[in-house]
């Protein structure tokens, strides 16, 4: 089950996978979150991470960006060992959307989006016109152009999430790690933000790894699914192979059904 069905056609002249893990194991306290995980995200691919609360979705993302240590195994980012990247270099290639932000200190929407440029700038340098243009484009993509001068402490939850996504877009990473990207967003913005990111991933040959509770969102945007079933076990494979009512019902411990309608399908609790 821990195999990988997506890199059958691999040839040596292609660029290295955006992300690859070999025999990765993570424990939390005495609990094993998963063991011997072999993940590969090739350029242009999206991976969805699903699983019950507390199965380790967020811990996996944090491990991939070196915010918490793994217990064993290797993580390769763009063909290079994770620990060989300096934190700042890593941030120019890897961007993460956290589950919740911290918006106690005042800053405008524009100032916040510009923070995405931070890893790209030398210590003394100020943001130039190009950086401002990147931030502007990102804010426009999230339909925040009318709010650029607003203080983020006065925004609604959904607007803050859009600012956080815009900051990530301005960062222009090569691997996007998203932790619950749909948080606080209405359905239109859930689709819109993932459309924007997915389009970048496909056209520019980048990678996306998102942890979510929304099975339908994962089914719509992901090529591969990692379904964490607890106790160190998981299912990994192509989306249509993994996302079946049987697998999901077992993983979530709750009856999940699927209906197919006009070529798409929807999962819902029975």
């Amino acid at each position: 089950m821990a195999g990988n069905s997506m890199n059958n056609s691999k040839d040596d002249t292609r660029k290295p996978p955006v992300l690859q893990t070999r025999a990765l194991s993570i424990t939390m306290g005495a609990r094993e979150l998963f063991r011997d995980l072999n993940l590969t995200i090739e350029a242009g691919q999206c991976l969805g991470v699903l699983g019950q609360n507390g199965t380790g979705k967020t811990s996996l993302l944090h491990t991939l960006i070196n915010l918490r240590p793994s217990d064993s195994g290797a993580i390769m980012i763009l063909g290079r060992e994770l620990n060989a990247w300096s934190r700042r270099e890593l941030a120019t290639r890897l961007g993460i959307l956290f589950q919740s932000g911290n918006d106690d200190m005042p800053a405008t929407v524009m100032e916040t989006a510009l923070l995405g440029r931070h890893p790209h700038l030398a210590r003394w340098r100020w943001e130039n016109a190009e950086d401002v243009a990147q931030a502007h484009a990102a804010l426009t993509a999230m339909q925040l152009d009318g709010l650029v001068e607003r203080d983020i402490t006065t925004l609604s939850g959904g607007e803050r999430q859009r600012v956080a996504i815009a900051t990530l877009l301005a960062q222009r990473p090569q691997l996007y790690l998203l932790d619950e990207p749909g948080n606080h967003l209405d359905i239109a913005f859930q689709i819109r933000s993932l459309d924007v990111i997915r389009q970048r991933v496909v056209t520019e040959g980048l990678g996306l790894c998102m942890a979510t509770h929304d099975i339908n969102l994962a089914a719509r945007f992901c090529d591969q699914i990692l379904l964490l079933t607890g106790d160190g076990e998981f299912l990994l494979g192509a989306t249509h192979v993994i996302l079946t009512p049987e697998n999901l019902s077992r993983a979530y411990g709750c009856d999940i059904r699927q209906v197919t309608y006009e070529g798409g399908s929807v999962f819902f609790p029975g």
């Binding site: 941030a91 100032e111 931070h118």
Partner: peptide, 23 residues
């Protein structure tokens, strides 16, 4: 002043700052 831009990032939270490349 040398750390000023990093301070802008840190004001958004420890995780955010680490994600954006701040030690």
């Amino acid at each position: 002043m040398l750390q000023a831009r990093s301070l802008n990032v840190l004001a958004r939270g420890d995780l955010q700052a680490a994600g954006l490349g701040v030690d």
